[in-house]
Design a protein around this nucleic acid. Structure first.
Length: 156
DNA sequence: GCCAACGTTGGC
DNA sequence: GCCAACGTTGGC
C-alpha cells in the first residue's frame, strides 16, 4: 500500500465533481508530465490511498481522500485531436500517457491548507513543501500521510 | 495578472 | 549532448 497526492484545479474538476460521478469514480486523465506518468504507470496500485489537492484557486490545499480502483491504462485523450490532451506523437501501439481510476472516499470537513501543511513540523518530505513541488502526481511518505490525515480529520 | 521555477523542444 | 528559447504550473 502506497500513498499519493493528486492535484486538480477545482474549476475544472473538484472533489465534489468526483463525489458526484456515477459510482463516485473517475479516470484521472490529462497527466502530461513524464515523472508523474512514471508514477502512474509503474508504481500506483489498486487500493493505494490518494489525497485530493485543489490547486490554482482561492483555497489551495488537501480537500479529501480517494482510492485507486483501477491501475494504469492508456489515457485515451492522447489519441483524440478534439481534446487539449491530444499528443500526435503517441501511438496506439506505444501509448505515451497513462491514467488510473480513482474512487471518492471522503471529503474533509475542513480544508488542510498549503499554508498549514508548510507549518507542520513533521512534514518535510512530501513534494508540496519542497522544490519541484509542481508535480501533479506525487508520492506521500507513509508517516507524513498519517500526520496529514490526522490533521485533516480532527475537529479544529 | 505576475513571475519564479521548472520542463520541453529543437537547432546546432 | 548542449543550451537558449519557449511553454506551463501554480502560489501569491
Amino acid at each position: 500500500m502506497q500513498y499519493w497526492l493528486f492535484k486538480t484545479e477545482p474549476d475544472a474538476f473538484s472533489i465534489d465533481d468526483l463525489a458526484n460521478m456515477p459510482n463516485q469514480t473517475e479516470h484521472w486523465d490529462g497527466i502530461r508530465n513524464y515523472q508523474a506518468r512514471n508514477f502512474l504507470r509503474d508504481q500506483i496500485k489498486q487500493g493505494d490511498q490518494v489525497f485530493i489537492y485543489h490547486s490554482s484557486c482561492k483555497d489551495v490545499g488537501i480537500v479529501g481522500l480517494a482510492e485507486v480502483v483501477k491501475e494504469a491504462y492508456p489515457d485515451h485523450t492522447q489519441f483524440n485531436p478534439e481534446t487539449k490532451y491530444y499528443d500526435p506523437k503517441s501511438t496506439q501501439d506505444k501509448p505515451r500517457w497513462y491514467m488510473v481510476d480513482i474512487k471518492f472516499k471522503q471529503k474533509f470537513d475542513h480544508l488542510l491548507s498549503l499554508k498549514a501543511i508548510k507549518q507542520m513540523a513533521d512534514i518535510s518530505e512530501v513534494g508540496l513543501v519542497k522544490k519541484g513541488g509542481r508535480l501533479s502526481v506525487m508520492p506521500v511518505p507513509e508517516h507524513e500521510f498519517r500526520v496529514l490525515l490526522k490533521q485533516a480529520t480532527q475537529s479544529q
